[in-house]
Write a protein that binds this DNA or RNA. Structure first.
Lengths: 184, 184
DNA sequence: TTAGATGTGTAGTATATACAACACATTGTA
DNA sequence: TACAATGTGTTGTATATACTACACATCTAA
């Protein structure tokens, strides 16, 4: 809302860097991608990279967040409530995102990536909860969001592992009553 | 050869501007394209436009030259002589370029565009002649290049006008003996 | 072990781009 | 006519990016 517009040069350069990184991720494993590779691909100076990102892990984090967030924003920007529909869309976005990831080789960095994704989910859920129940305790929202994010992320991992014929929607629907109405 | 490498920012920005201009040319007539349109499309500041180009006609000139030159370079960079083969490739590049142009609306600026194209052809032919006959008088090369450029450009106009089944290659082949061996 | 090669991260300076403001011209419209 | 709106081209200043050099780490080969 109170967005102060950022310098177009910054937006442009960040996008070039992230796009180059994503492109390289399709060719090499993460551990083999050097910062020189990225800046060469992006045709920017190496020093400029450090102007925007702390190091390559910072880039990984921001690139993943951005890609995931774009997926999510287009999916559930309209819905501002945490309900059955929202959860289904969220889950679909995650499984979809995981599928694109699995086509790229990030061997050895699965844990980092998993953490980033889960944190993103947590942020999204937290914001939804705050909007939905403005008066209540934020600490409770925090814990709830944390637990839900772990649960939903874990579900996406399990879904991918049992890569059977169940669609993401059907899969998560099995758990939704528990999420929404609780154990009772 | 003695290319002093130019700042990547300049290359990048020029490309963005030209690409935006070409993109806009597909939507609007030239006379309706404002500099604000271009800079908005390119997401650069209007002052930056004037850093690179004098005005919109300067951009038109450079954009056309560049597109035509790229066509030509990829076609006849290998051949450094002005022979039958070179002329055929040159003619093909021009007709091909004219076809792409005809899909865009530049009504009222045909003359300007024609001049730019012809001048480009002249430069190319002149350079070929200088390379081919290094010892001889440059003034003669100049006149020869001028006449040939007018002739070849004119032929491309005629070819397009009689838009019949003759291919550019067949068409120009009819005139090649005259060009190469002269009237006798 | 020692060098050499490659990668990371930082700092100082030069240059390109962003932005805002301005004067001026052109166009449409009341 | 007037006067608002839109476009052109310029200028001054702030900021982002390019470039170069440097110190340091890691790895490989002699």
């Amino acid at each position: 809302m109170t967005e102060t517009k950022t310098d177009p040069r910054i937006l442009r350069t960040r996008k070039i860097i992230m796009d180059s990184f994503i492109k390289l991720s399709g060719k090499k494993e993460f551990k083999d991608i050097t910062i020189k590779d990225i800046t060469t691909e992006a045709m920017i100076n190496r020093a400029t990279f450090y102007y925007h990102f702390e190091d390559i892990y910072d880039l990984l984090e921001k690139a993943l967040s951005e890609v995931l967030l774009i997926n999510l924003n287009t999916n559930l920007y309209q819905n501002s409530e945490l309900n059955e529909d929202t959860i289904i869309r969220l889950f679909q976005a995650i499984t979809n995102f995981q599928l694109t990831l699995s086509n790229r080789c990030h061997r050895g960095y699965e844990d980092t990536i998993a953490r980033i994704i889960r944190e993103q989910i947590e942020v999204i859920i937290f914001n939804l909860l705050v909007k939905q129940f403005p008066g209540e305790e934020k600490k409770a929202h925090k814990v709830t969001a944390s637990m839900l994010s772990w649960g939903i992320y874990g579900a996406s991992v399990e879904w991918r592992r049992n890569n059977n014929s169940t669609s993401p929607e059907e899969y998560i629907k099995l758990a939704i009553p528990y999420i929404i109405y609780g154990i009772n």
